[in-house]
């Protein structure tokens, strides 16, 4: 009986501690809100036009050969696909990187600050063979380029 009572007390104590934990993590999350808000609805969109709509307010893009995407033609490992994007368009403000065949196509967005070149390189996951799309925003207009990447082993799920 006594032991059972102690167990109750312990349970109560741990519940209280849990509440404090939640409060603390909520506090930790607050500074993130100060930075540019993470566009959750754009990142969770399942189709390329939806993702662009949610991110940039429009999905009307103009194909441009001034945007260069460097990507492997065949990616042996879809979990690590190196991508380099370089835009030759004057005044490129931001670059969005999308993988058309991924469940959630929007992978990353880059915003250029003062003095930054329209250049970004990273490594992304590709679920299956598909296009890698780069959308550059410059002077209120959107330009896009795409390149196909063949994936032999997918990098999403497992």
């Amino acid at each position: 009986m006594n032991a059972n009572h102690k167990r109750r007390v312990f349970l109560k104590g741990s519940v209280a501690a849990g509440t404090i934990g939640v409060a603390a993590s909520a506090g930790l999350l607050a500074p993130a809100a100060v930075m540019a808000e993470w566009p959750a609805n754009a990142f969770s969109a399942r189709k390329v036009p939806d993702a662009l709509d949610n991110l940039l307010g429009s999905n009307a893009t103009e194909a441009s050969d001034k945007i260069k995407i460097k990507a492997p033609e065949i990616a042996e490992n879809g979990a690590v696909v190196p991508i380099t994007i370089e835009s030759g368009i004057d005044g490129t403000e931001s670059i969005a990187l999308l993988a058309a065949a991924n469940g959630t196509p929007l992978v990353a967005t880059f915003t250029m600050g003062e003095g930054a070149k329209a250049y970004a390189a990273t490594r992304i996951k590709l679920g299956k063979t598909g296009d890698v799309i780069a959308v550059c925003k410059a002077g209120g207009k959107m330009y896009s380029a795409r390149t196909g990447v063949k994936v032999t082993i997918g990098g999403c799920g497992g």
Partner: peptide
Amino acid sequence: LSANWSGGVSKNPYLAF
């Protein structure tokens, strides 16, 4: 430079600009 990423970026991410 500022960037927003999803989980679609590879593990142990690399970034160059």
